[in-house]
Design a protein around this nucleic acid. Structure first.
Lengths: 249, 249
DNA sequence: CGGGGTTGACCTCAGGATGAGAACAAGCTA
DNA sequence: TAGCTTGTTCTCATCCTGAGGTCAACCCCG
């Protein structure tokens, strides 16, 4: 039997039925604090609980499913430009039997990094979605609290050796804005002078626009210079976060 | 309707049928070269092609499925001690429509690191499995070549900031054996003196047994000291690999 | 049995990166 | 205008890194 004949006679019903979903840990920074996008579940199971946005994978790639769900939950439309600047990457998959009481569900979790997004639009599918500071997320449906924790770990680590922080700011930004991203995600202040020197010394991290901001910060200071993201995909050398007590092990 | 009533009336057939598999990138070091475990496919599709070992997920966690497949394909039995020393971690998931011509299949790929394992046993399920140097893997079935490439990237990166290299050697090892692991995975020689200093200076990476090996190497030299893995789970500071030309970007 | 070659362990030294602190001028609010 | 905040640039001591050398232990070969 050749391969074509085999495929024509193939019966897909022979395998255990599993549902595949995508769940999204979408992060943004508002007022200097890291926020995550959550939804309030309408139906069972976990009715009334807060959960990560997500849904079943249709006839599309996993990446496409994640982008579609993100667009639906935020009310943003592809092509309006905002979604194009969202960084989306796969986090990992969760498939313990029993993690969903309905049936066997394997969830492919995604991590999204966005510049400050508008509040999800009322009157759309996204009516139930909202941004919450990550330290106020509280209990979540399913195993979503664990997924969120894994997503935060990944985000904090990736700031060290990738230029990911630029995904949290606009197309043009100041060094101080970038520093605020690191401070919000890592949860600690950074030495302004050393951070400045470090960012400018890593090849390809940022490039100068030659312009300065039209205004200084609210509380004074000189007009900061503006930069845009460079072409580096890895930071060499990396921007290591202060080794917390040597005891991270 | 409460949640229990909802679940009792729930019909799982309403979702698109997807099969979930695990595929394993199992790495080991033989004769100083990095090898990957491959199988030759008996049936369609891709009959006769080489592929990563794997199979359908049953009523078990994803991690358990990966460990079970690895045991089946290598012929190793749990409880004999060898499998307990294999490091297994999830890599990422692959789910493009069309990656399997039979049906929609989402594969959760795993990465396994093992000390030098025996050849898979003839006469078992594992008869078709064999170790191949990674640079001679050639074309693989499905998208397995891409999965292998992702696994190698991950392995090379994790050597930098985790004590993963100790998973490739026996319970007691010399610094030179550890250096050979790095050399094999990274594909480049390392400065012996600097490597020695670095390994011993990272807290928790290795701890001395106080013993020395009963014999020196085949070509002479003093009897090396023996070490075992320490309790660190992250290396601080990291063992950075030589920045290839600064151009990795 | 002795010698050449190899190896593990350690040391030195120059260059670069890091952390902490300070200087200074531009710009905000009161 | 006064006082304070902030962006940017320096300095300096400290640490880490890469490259190389030293020395004695040990293997194999002749």
């Amino acid at each position: 039997m050749d391969e074509r004949t085999f495929l024509e006679g193939y019966d897909p019903a022979g395998f255990p039925a599993v549902a595949v979903t995508v769940d999204i840990v979408a992060l943004t920074i508002r007022d200097g604090r890291l926020h995550v996008l959550l939804v309030e579940r309408g139906g069972h199971p976990f009715a009334g609980w807060r959960a990560l946005p997500g849904g079943f994978v249709q006839d599309e790639t996993l990446d496409a499913a994640a982008l579609r769900e993100l667009a639906e939950e935020t009310g943003l439309r592809p092509g309006e430009g905002v979604l194009d600047r969202v960084h989306l990457e796969q986090l990992r998959s969760y498939g313990d039997p029993g993690r969903d009481p309905r049936m066997r569900v394997v969830s492919v979790a995604y991590l999204a990094f966005a510049p400050s997004l508008p509040d999800p639009r009322a009157g759309t599918d996204a009516a139930g979605a909202f941004w919450v500071p990550v330290d106020e997320a509280g209990e979540l449906a399913f195993d979503h609290a664990a997924i969120l924790a894994d997503g935060l770990d990944r985000a904090r680590a990736k700031l060290e050796y990738t230029p990911l922080a630029t995904a949290f700011v606009g197309p043009e930004f100041t060094i101080a804005e970038l520093r605020a991203v690191y401070a919000a995600v890592w949860g600690e202040e950074l030495h302004a002078g050393n951070f400045h020197r470090k960012v400018l010394s890593v090849p390809g991290f940022v490039e100068s626009t030659g312009e300065t901001a039209p205004r200084a910060g609210e509380r004074g200071g000189p007009k900061p210079r503006l930069y845009r993201a460079g072409d580096a995909r890895l930071l060499h050398p990396a921007l290591l976060r202060p080794a917390g007590e040597d005891g991270i092990r």
